[in-house]
Design a protein around this nucleic acid. Sequence first.
RNA 1: GAGCCCGUGGUCUAGCGGUCAAGACGCCAGCCUUACACGCUGGAUAUCCCCGGUUCGAAUCCGGGCGGGCUCACCA
Length: 777
Amino acid sequence: MLEQRFTSAIEEKWQKKWEEDHTFRFDESSPKPIYSIDTPPPFTSGELHMGHSLSYSYFDFVARYKRMQGFNVFYPQGWDTQGFPTETKVEKKYGRLPREEFRQKCVEWSELMIAKMHESMVRMGFSPDWARQYRTMDPTYHETVQKSLHLMYDKEMIYRGEHPVFWCYKCRSALAKTDTEDLERETILNHVIFTGPKGEDLIIATTRPELMYACVAVMYHPSDERYTHLEGKEITTALGKKVKAIPDKDVDKEYGTGLLMVCTFGDKQDIIWAYRYKLPIISVIDSHGKMTGAGEFNGLAPAEAKLKLIEKLKAEGKIVKQEKQQQVVKVHDRCKTPIEFALSHQWFADITKHREEVKEMAKQIEWVPSFGISYLTDWVDGAEWDWVISRQRYFGTPIPFYYCEKCGHTAKADSLPFYPDKAPEKKCPCGGMMKAEESVLDCWVDSSITPLIVAGWPNKGWEKFYPSSLRPQGVEIVRTWAFYTIYRSGVGITGKKPWDTVLLNGNVLAPDGKKMSKSLGNVIQPTELLKEYPADALRQWAAMSGAMAKDRPFSYEDIKFAKSFLTKIWNAAKFMEKSLEGYDGSKPELRAVDKWMLESLNLTIEECTDAMERYEFHRCIKRLQDFFWHEFCDDYLEYVKYRIYGTDEDSKRAAQYVLSEVFYSFLKLLAPISPFIAEELYQEMYKAREGHSICFAPWPKVSARFSGDYQKVSGMREIVSAIRQFKATNRLSQGAEMEKLTVRYHTEISAELIEEIKQIARVKELKTEKGELEVHS
RNA sequence: GAGCCCGUGGUCUAGCGGUCAAGACGCCAGCCUUACACGCUGGAUAUCCCCGGUUCGAAUCCGGGCGGGCUCACCA
């Protein structure tokens, strides 16, 4: 007997059972073809957010569908543990600790977070092979990352160099471009008097006067007649320093006075110019973020120095104008501190040398949706510098190299995993001692080899799992995760594409269409939703949200609808359980409506299969909802009730056969998206007919076609609907029995269907006439 | 500024060359029809953003606007 209602207790029962039975464990000895998924390792924040629920549901649908299609699904689960946010949390809790102790606390914290997230993921019904977990903080993971770097180092793709990098003074670390975001703010554009070769006043405009100490040139546009006479001449800055005037096409004549000062380094354009004209490099901000080489302002924070310098220049009458202006500055995405450029020694990966190979490899991969590849190619084309892979942090994979401070020579560590504090001494060919690198790697270096990690690289047999069949991921990290993986795992290490297909998903917005954010108070947590909605409903919401790489607001309507759909299925199941009582499994001759129902199922199987193949989950679930709710429940169930309750045994058994078969196929079609209810009903009603779990039952196939009957019955359905309408307009109950009705229809209706109509619509005597569809008494 | 997505009843979407443009939510009316009132049966509501073009025929294809979103680049 089925329970009264479908509850989360039923879901929890199956979660437990699946875990205990290791239902989703990868079977190494299976002869089935492998389908492997390079799943995203979530950053271990401890919270599963709506974005996770969406994207992890997506590939869980795929995994479950592929299992039913007969694939041996390889579906590991990783954890991205290292990085700034963990350090921040641990530092907040424990304060500053010695390096090794600090790392240990980070590990402990991450483990707690993993446990929390694991629980939520089980609750969602995700079906990875939990025996195959990896964590980026594990020594084995470190070793593999380090090995991959050595390999790339041997291919001269990794180097140590001095180059201006994005620098966060708060975190005191180099950053990659992807660690930055834009912040709009107000600033002041100062018009400052410099002195020309003939002693005349020249006005330059700057938002950062404090960098004037690093001024190395003054520039104007080559066609700007106000300044063309200055070419090659010496200009004296407001601080008395002499610099050259240089014309350059990148200068905007309209901005400020059309004359500007170049400082090394105020912004990216300054760097471009510095390299273009081989200008000297002057640092006015030290590694602690204090002014240096700025005379009386040494030791001040740049912002303070700026105010004081402006005061001083004003007093000297050297500022002629100040105007307010909106400005966009780059800030560190983790701490929101504005970024400076700093010259420092860092490790780099030579992405700029491999643009074409990366693009070429990306073309060999199927992108879903297809425009997804453009995010990658646009990004690759726009990348101007190599990827800074070193970070001056603690909780990260150590960089497995030595360098010589004297001569700059670099060398690989001799044994892996490498940890600088335990590293043996190493001599440099120049005679000095080498230093073990203490910086750690950018987290994307860790995660850009996940397809290799899951494949077991470089151990024997990894080729069997590489490339992965599928890489699912968010569209916003194409330029990082997808790009870096193709560059490292593909171009750098194996020479082969890392996956066959990339499946992209968008972000979940708040119901108001805005980004979810704590400050706006519009954050929705999956764990909160799960208190009110079954996981099966949340998964249906994910399916309904559309597979395209498009942001979509969270919809309470969708999840409510999903929940009522589950109730509908449950109630129908209870009805079926009663209706199928005593059914012997035989298959007597089918009637037209039965064939109509079977053909409608056929069409549903075709649609759902096609939708799943194309990762269009919304199409699959929508079809299932329409088919089941309306065609199966509202129509077919109602059409056959009189047969189920009647005395004609053959007719009854035919209906029972169709009910049973259609519902069975429906459950299988639903299983990838809402597995809990499907499993419960499969076990309860069908006694695990095709194996121990519906998760491995074969995906339904179309067998016999009934297209002709489908057409014929459509007419019948129109007439039934017309009779219902007649009853509705006459304020009659649909159950009311009619003595006599006349129906007009444009074609002949078979005697069998007329009989059917009479029974379904409860009409004792039904006359038919030819003509426009109409019903009257 | 560039690239990419998108503009369909009140709301959210489906449809992407051919019957009266489909569904969900909401709204209105009726019905407790022996699975379900978390239900059923009906009903109202759309110049398918605008302007041109291709076509026998366009929401659907092409061009140009207008409007929104995302990503990238941005000026000292």
